[in-house]
């Protein structure tokens, strides 16, 4: 893969006493952890244990019932995780009617952070993801795995220090999974951090959080 040309500034991701509920049920309670540059956190747990709820909460889509999750820089200034994170969920956020290139160009403009611009073009990112041939195709024509790769390409186009990945291996073939592992390793090497919910091993060095309804 490409050698990292830049690295993310030093930061600490701090979660303290987090609690999230879904549909009136508390799924995550009193959760605290801390990540810094280069750390990864892998979240496992049975179906319904609250993996997605936790990730959506960290991404700022759900408001926490208790606790805080913040990103602190060296000076001690803090920001919400959402404003610094890429969220990869079950959908890719691609418009079926637009081509892969158009979708990616849009997300590059929308998600780029000031001071962290990438020199990649959507076409180059698609090539890195192993699907250069789909750039001009409307996303509606693509297979699930290709759609996934197009979706993941936005992680390279708009560098953000935190990746929040919900079942990132879904729909990817063996080659695609190996590619994603490489991308995650590069991201960590650049000083990024990632939080991933998964059932299958991701092949990266990480902290491990196991969620369970009850023992």
């Amino acid at each position: 893969m490409t050698e990292s040309l830049f690295s993310f500034p030093t930061f600490r991701l701090e979660a303290q006493g987090l609690a999230f509920a879904r549909g009136g049920r508390t799924l995550v309670e009193d959760l605290s952890f801390e990540l810094t540059n280069g750390n990864a956190l892998v979240v496992t747990g049975a179906n319904g244990a609250g993996k997605s709820t936790l990730l959506r909460g960290l991404a700022g889509f759900l408001s926490a019932h208790a606790g805080t999750a913040l990103l602190m820089d060296e000076a001690g200034a803090h920001e919400t995780i959402a404003s610094q994170a890429h969220y990869v969920g079950h959908q890719e956020g691609s418009k079926p009617a637009l081509t892969a290139r158009e979708n990616l160009a849009f997300w590059q403009a929308m998600l780029a952070l000031p001071g962290l611009k990438s020199d990649l073009t959507p076409d180059a990112a698609l090539a890195l993801l192993g699907v250069p041939q789909v750039a001009d195709l409307p996303v509606a024509y693509l297979s699930a795995g290709q759609k996934r790769r197009v979706g993941l390409a936005r992680l390279l186009l708009a560098p953000r220090p935190v990746w929040i990945l919900d079942e990132p291996l879904t729909a990817l073939d063996a080659a695609g999974q190996a590619l994603l592992t490489e991308l995650m390793k590069d991201h960590l090497a650049q000083g990024g951090t990632l939080i991933a919910a998964t059932h299958a091993p991701l092949g990266i060095e990480s902290l491990h959080l196991e969620l369970g309804g009850t023992p």
Partner: peptide, 16 residues
């Protein structure tokens, strides 16, 4: 049951 949800945070050495 009414028991609180639990979670375990562990350090995994090396690739899982």
């Amino acid at each position: 049951t009414n028991a609180q949800p639990t979670h375990r945070l562990t350090m995994t050495g090396g690739a899982e």
